[in-house]
Amino acid sequence: MISTTKQDMLITLRLIRKNILSIVGIVIVSLFVVTSLFVALTGMLPYDPNEINMQRRLLPPSFTHPFGTDHLGRDIFSRVLAAAPLDLIVAFTVVSISLIIGLIIGSVAGYYAGKVDQILMRITDVFLAFPPLILAVAVAVALGAGIDKLILALLIVWWPIYSRMARASALSIKESFFVKAAKISGLNSLIIIRKHIIPNTVSTLLIYATLDMGTVILYASVLSYLGLGAQPPQSEWGRMVFDGQSYLIQAWWSPIIPGLVIFFVALGFNLMGDAIRDILDPRYRR
């Protein structure tokens, strides 16, 4: 009796902990999205994020400058906020376009199987064969700087994973009786893919996509840190870490705070992704 109650308590504790983590994730992500939308729509910021003022350079965090100022006297809080919509747009565009490309290529490959599958999947494998970050850097270097090129570079790295997943899902859905029934009714393959395969694949991919947003933000920051992607004076979190790192000793807030922002946003998306997976997958429920 005692052991079971103890076990019950442990399960309850674990549930509560998991719940807190899920809530933390959802709070961080909603904060990020709401702030991004607010900044993007109103353009309201405490200070002009690009205003250089040598009088107030490298000020520590205070009430007037909550995150301090950087080596050019720019308010870090305003710069962090100004960069939020940018990262949201990058993450959203990369993930959603990858999702669409992946859905189409994966469903076609999985449904037709045989030669079509072989050709499409070998092409996918070529992209998957490279370490993703190195491929992204290489493409970004080749394309040059700029947000649009950053998005393109990340897309090239991102879509193969989605097409692989969509293919796996299409392979199993293809064998279900409702697809066979559709075939017997005389539907052609394209309609079957559009009406039966894709709608049943999309939900699994959507869960993965939310989990994935944080990773895209991490990658975008890495590329910006390396000087690819966002160009000055446009503020970007990765770029801010790079700009501040030479002042790490005198002004730790200048690189550390943007770094922490990246960390928390990525963490938030991961926690939320976990929560969504737990909610949708009854096997994880206890």
Partner: peptide, 15 residues
């Protein structure tokens, strides 16, 4: 030429 399948759960598209 039509067919009725064994498993009524997987023979209808859930969406």
């Amino acid at each position: 030429l039509q067919m009725v399948f064994q498993d009524p759960y997987s023979s209808l598209n859930p969406r």
